[in-house]
Design a protein around this nucleic acid. Structure first.
Lengths: 342, 342
DNA sequence: TTGAAAGCGATACCAC
DNA sequence: GTGGTATCGCTTTCAA
């Protein structure tokens, strides 16, 4: 609103009551006589009065704002997280403010700073790829100031922050079993294990080969930045350096899709010459050809849970200890690893 | 922030100056002696002081918040718009608050109400599909209250609101020429002309046939809700009711992609048996097979321009009249309309 | 160049 | 049940 809007005091005058009473009516708090309530409600309606959130925030020290930090939109996972977070937030009376700046840890701090200045009640950091292992140090100053924060994707080894993760080891294991059963001994993993979630997927993957009794003689790891272009480049490197590579597992779907392009460009048929799979379960994976084998995560639900975790932290309805919530991924086999799915 | 944070008054005490001076330092406004400035800046740094935006908003009547209302994330166009809007906003000191509720005009009003209560400085309504022709009446109450609003996609016939559109007639015309040259006389347009942008695309499409001298004997229009599923259903209807249909033009890419699935399911080869095209130029269109012919819109730039238009309206640096900004689409021919692109 | 003090528009505590 | 009023943290005249 730009011009003069009615204020609570105006309503009070109009209804012939005190500001305190108007406030009670608005917030449905305390005792208000039935007749007075009606009079006040009329005044509110006739003026189209909307309480000033900034004023309210000043005294309650709550803005009903939640900051959501995500890395990018190129990867559709974040849309679903965003959607889930926004839905759950709005249902509970919160609005979501975006924090999408650059790609590294520093930019997370910048975003948090901006959001903190807005007095958001809490912040969701959904930028797993850019965290390093362990409790992210760049979050420490904010934790110290008791700004409620929940993070997505990485296990907080020091158990200081609430967070949501996937059973990454199991997901890696499921992919490992799938690849091992197909007999792939020369695999390239795209995405280095510098974060807890990637590391656990790698470990699960290897464990599956051990359990299956298949040697993983040609295992290689290619670094990549979790983008489609990055996945594409990593796959091209892998294929030219190790032409014998028979399977690629990217740490997310969008890189896997980049890898499919790379395979095509280098004249390989997928899956006949090269099997490719990813993680996340983005819808795009079912639209590309060949359809992408993946591990599907319940991203929308995870978005919802992130704000629920955060809100319970904000209103203190949870204990003091940090909570970790773990979701399950589900292996989805499609054409990019086996031509004929049974 | 949850617990006690330093306040401006604390800084003043610490630096041995008055609150007014601290305020001047923070906002780089008015005169401040060089030495005093340094002292104050030190105090700010050592405490990690962050000014309380709510308090500031109360007195300045500005929150530096922009509301962004979009319909859905299923359609990737909105990601780019969102990204553009967020980038441009942050660059200019604004933060973006999301408004994604349901799909109809009522939900737009609900979202605006929520955002207005937050005292956002202005609102972007980027929900073209759900506007009806002419100035959207559901926006009127907010315009009356002088809440700055800019809209995307529909021409505001009464010229009351700032807005951004595409040269929809020309885009429709370009598609019409493309289809006419390919000799398609039985076309189905998916998406009814109930909004200005759809209507103009239809008109341009028809005009091209006239100019090209080709009869458009089998033109049909199928209603659809601008979702992939909607496009899919509309295409299935079209193909079963009018088996002679040789081309489908969907009013957006995501519906066109749904139509490709429909073609596949009904045993038609694209483009040999059925040509399919859309509008928007989402990246997904280049990933599906066959690759989708489309008209590419500069969505990221449009997102940026939306906030620039809005901000100039907020700070009053523009005249009183509503402005319409028109962007150009670019025809991109791919495999879904001609097997061999020259 | 700096300080004092008056609000901004709600809430919530304490009387009545 | 209802009213009076101090208060939140900052900006902004107006004086000095």
């Amino acid at each position: 609103m730009n011009e003069k809007n009615a204020t609570l005091a105006d309503i009070a005058r109009l209804a012939g009551v005190s500001p305190a009473t108007v406030s009670r009516v608005i917030n449905k708090s305390g005792y208000v006589g039935n007749r007075t309530r009606l009079v006040v409600e009329d005044a509110i309606k006739s003026t189209g009065f909307v309480p000033n959130a900034a004023a309210k925030a000043m005294v309650t020290r709550r803005t009903s704002l939640i900051g959501l930090i995500i890395p990018t939109f190129e990867n559709p996972v974040y849309q679903e997280i965003l959607k889930g977070a926004n839905d759950a937030g709005v249902e509970r009376g919160f609005s979501v403010v975006l924090g999408i700046e650059g790609e590294d840890d520093k930019s997370v701090s910048a975003a948090i700073l901006r959001l903190a200045a807005l007095q958001v009640d809490g912040i969701i950091v959904a930028k797993p790829e850019y965290h390093s292992i362990g409790t992210a140090e760049h979050l420490q100053p904010f934790i110290a100031r008791r700004l409620p924060i929940v993070q997505l994707g990485n296990r907080d080894l020091e158990n200081l922050i609430d967070g949501i993760t996937i059973n990454d080891f199991d997901c890696g294991y499921a992919m490992g079993m799938h690849f091992a059963r197909l007999g792939h001994e020369s695999c390239t993993l795209i995405g280095e294990p510098v974060n807890s979630f990637v590391r656990e997927r790698h470990e699960g993957f290897r464990k599956a080969y051990v359990d299956q009794g298949l040697p993983l003689t040609g295992l290689a790891v290619e670094a990549a930045d979790f983008s489609r272009a990055g996945g594409n480049a990593a796959a091209l490197r892998a294929l030219s350096e190790r032409p014998g590579t028979s399977a690629i597992l990217a740490m997310n779907d969008i890189m896997a899709i980049g890898a499919i392009d790379a395979a095509e460009r280098s004249g390989r048929r997928v899956p006949e010459d090269l099997a490719i799979a990813g993680f996340d379960g983005i819808q795009l994976g079912a639209l590309v050809r060949p359809r992408l084998t993946t591990v599907i995560f319940p991203t929308y639900e995870m978005g919802r849970s992130l704000v629920e975790l955060l809100i319970s932290r904000i209103d203190g309805s949870c204990g003091g200890e940090a909570r970790q919530m773990v979701f399950n991924g589900r292996l989805m086999v499609r054409e990019s690893t086996i031509r004929t799915v049974l």
